[in-house]
Amino acid sequence: MTRVLVVDDQFLIRAGLVGLLRAAPGIEVVGEAGDGAEAVRQAAATRPDVILMDIRMPGMTGIEATERILAEATDPAPRVLVLTTFDLDEYVYRALRAGACGFLLKDSGPERLLAAVAAVGGGDGLFAPSVTRRLVEAFARRPQAGPTAALDALTTRETEVLRLTGCGMSNQDIADRLFISEATVKTHLNRAMSKLDLDSRAQAVVVAYESGLVTPGGTRP
């Protein structure tokens, strides 16, 4: 059973999400919140597996709430799935840096929402490659001066896996490209994330852009 906390300041949207999730098998809605401060309190009280987090809310934003929740959480920490629209891309980028595990567009259909909750609840990051590139490329705004010194600790294969992850490729896509097993891809990525002190695939994508491994606006390999 996946325990979910729903956070959105718009009552009708929040009610719709709660109703949909409660009707789905394998999901338990353990709480709902209309702002970031309430989300922090609810997360501490209910200890959900997944948090559907809106970004723009009165008072404490979803980004601030994500940072607080993850900083104060005991293991296992909840996995935050950001709710967004395309006109909030910059906020999504900041949320990923704060530790969110992925994002979901608010106009996604019911099947997409339920699949997203299942994926994030199961430990995966939620990244549709085309959407990932549009969001992260648009807001990897800093001048790219090449890989940072932290990447020097990575092996050649770990660096390549990190780069392809940043391009929006799934583990299976990377395995096919590099002619290795999917399990080996996971091992390389996990080792790279450990060396770079990253907590999620989302943060790995951001680091790939910020370090210059992936060039904003570039094409998929």
Rank of each mutant, 00 (worst) to 15 (best):
R41D: 09
A100Y: 13
A145K: 13
L154M: 04
E32F: 08
L198N: 11
S200T: 15
I180R: 05
L88P: 00
V161W: 10
A43R: 03
Q144R: 02
I180L: 14
R191Y: 03
A128S: 08
M57K: 03
G16R: 01
A77C: 06
M60N: 06
L196V: 13
R157Y: 07
T84N: 02
L135C: 08
E158K: 08
G34R: 06
L81D: 02
Y91H: 00
A77F: 03
G122W: 03
L162K: 04
A115D: 02
V80T: 04
L113E: 00
M57Q: 02
T219C: 08
I180A: 02
G212V: 10
L154V: 06
V161L: 01
V120L: 11
P25G: 13
C101W: 01
A73W: 05
D75Y: 02
V161P: 05
L17Y: 06
T215I: 15
R142I: 07
A128W: 10
M60S: 01
E90P: 05
R3D: 06
P129A: 13
V18A: 03
G168P: 07
I63D: 00
F127C: 04
R79P: 09
D87E: 12
L113H: 05
D152Q: 15
F139A: 04
T61S: 15
T184S: 09
S170E: 08
R3M: 00
D87T: 13
P76K: 09
V136M: 14
L198I: 11
F86S: 10
L213W: 07
D152L: 11
F11P: 03
V205D: 05
T74Q: 15
A202D: 02
S200G: 02
A98G: 12
A153M: 07
R41A: 14
G62R: 10
V207C: 02
D54A: 04
E210N: 10
A95K: 11
T84S: 13
L114Y: 09
E160D: 06
D87F: 13
E137I: 08
P25Q: 13
E67S: 12
E32W: 09
L104R: 11
G109R: 03
A208S: 14
D197A: 14
A118M: 03
Q203F: 08
L70F: 04
G19L: 15
L83C: 09
M53D: 12
T84H: 11
P216H: 13
T132H: 15
R41N: 10
P78M: 14
L17Q: 10
V18L: 03
T85R: 07
T155E: 12
S108P: 12
R97A: 15
V214H: 03
A98T: 06
A39K: 12
A140T: 06
G36I: 04
L52P: 10
A43P: 05
V117Q: 00
P78D: 04
T74R: 00
Y93P: 01
G146Y: 06
A15W: 00
I55Q: 03
V205I: 15
R41S: 02
A98D: 03
V206C: 11
R134F: 13
A37H: 07
G16K: 00
